[in-house]
Design a protein around this nucleic acid. Structure first.
Lengths: 206, 206
DNA sequence: GACCTTCTCACCTACGTGTTAAGC
DNA sequence: TCGCTTAACACGTAGGTGAGAAGG
């Protein structure tokens, strides 16, 4: 199972894959406010979108890429007086939220040639058809990316990448209106609400 | 490399894959009229859509599925007095039109679990970005599906399936108004024109 | 002139937004 | 009452139709 090593080359290419989150500036703005993501019965997309650049894979090997939602802590959260505070009610953790990237499986070269976007993952609070991630409302989650090598029958674990900047609290309706305003400002699908809300957020250069 | 054979099982599963075209009734209606497909500079989808059920693959092996457009004959076609007639001008065959199904590569189990649709292939008459198929206007084509096994570095040819019912002549504007009426009748994206054209076609039970 | 191609257009499908009011 | 969830809604994005006029 050993492969050739390019002696003066980039060792990482025969070692652990590397991963970089795109749009970090935007994610950080939401993270500072404590990010929220809507969950609905039929599933709601995330905004911002988890998008990662991957390097260090074997271009000709086959991998699947997955997005996992890890419940960060046990307690329920509550928004009171403009602040998120932990409540006292731990709940049974839901079935593990694992979303398979729709381009899986694919070659290492495919995953590395351009950033991998999880734009189409949908978050829900009800158990529906497959492809949707079930989350507990008012609980805090951290997205993680998994890379798994697939091939001749067997399936080998490769690596896991935590994305702490993308943490959020699942909600059925936005609690912090600053979060709402930031979503409206940057999500093109919410452009209908831009006029009425654009003064609510201290604007930098848009 | 040999695998176990289920002795009393379906031999075809370790033999050549089988393929069935979906929506044959609709395709036959167009074929009877001599089908036409629009080509545009930016690419136009096909209607009807080539959609096939596949069986007989190894569920755990990896395959890519491709759609090819084979120029049926050398001459240019012309629509005169309500009929397509061959002209006398053979033209140099364009670069081979091979469209890789966007879910490629994938497991045999994936390709077999539900029909494989080529809804997003786009036909053009100009060489554009990748993913679009360049065709010669006023020439006749026959779509074919190829299944190729991919895996540890090598790539093995598996099978080719001709789809004669889906033959068509590439055009920049529809020639036969019965073809136009049939497209409008069945393509939901053309619903805007349903009212004015629905009397033109002898209606069965829609 | 006849034929073919290109472009713009109104009109759809399909679906992603937060809002709001109603439900529990 | 209060907190949370649901469903209908108006208003966007994104893009697939053939029609028809204009171009070559």
């Amino acid at each position: 199972e050993m492969k050739d090593e390019k002696d003066a080359g980039d060792f990482s290419s025969s070692c652990a894959p590397k991963l970089r989150l795109e749009e970090q500036n935007l994610w950080k703005k939401f993270h500072t406010l404590t990010n929220e993501m809507i969950v609905t019965k039929n599933g709601r997309r995330m905004f911002p979108v988890v998008k990662v650049s991957i390097s260090g894979l074997d271009p000709s090997a086959m991998y699947s890429v997955l997005l996992e939602f890890v419940q960060v802590d046990q307690h329920r959260w509550k928004y009171v007086n403009g602040e998120w505070v932990p409540g006292g009610k731990p709940e049974p953790p839901p079935p593990c939220g694992l979303y398979l990237h729709p381009e899986s499986p694919n070659f290492g070269a495919h995953w590395m040639k351009e950033p991998v976007s999880f734009a189409k993952v949908k978050l829900t609070n009800k158990t529906n058809g497959v492809g949707q991630i079930v989350l507990n409302s008012l609980h805090k989650y951290e997205p993680r990316v998994h890379i798994v090598q697939v091939g001749s029958g067997d399936q080998r674990y490769v690596s896991t990448h935590a994305l702490p900047e993308t943490q959020f609290i699942a909600v059925t309706a936005y609690q912090n209106e600053e979060v709402t305003a930031l979503k409206i400002k940057h999500n093109p699908f919410a452009k209908a609400f831009l006029d009425s809300k654009e003064r609510s957020e201290p604007s930098s250069s848009s």
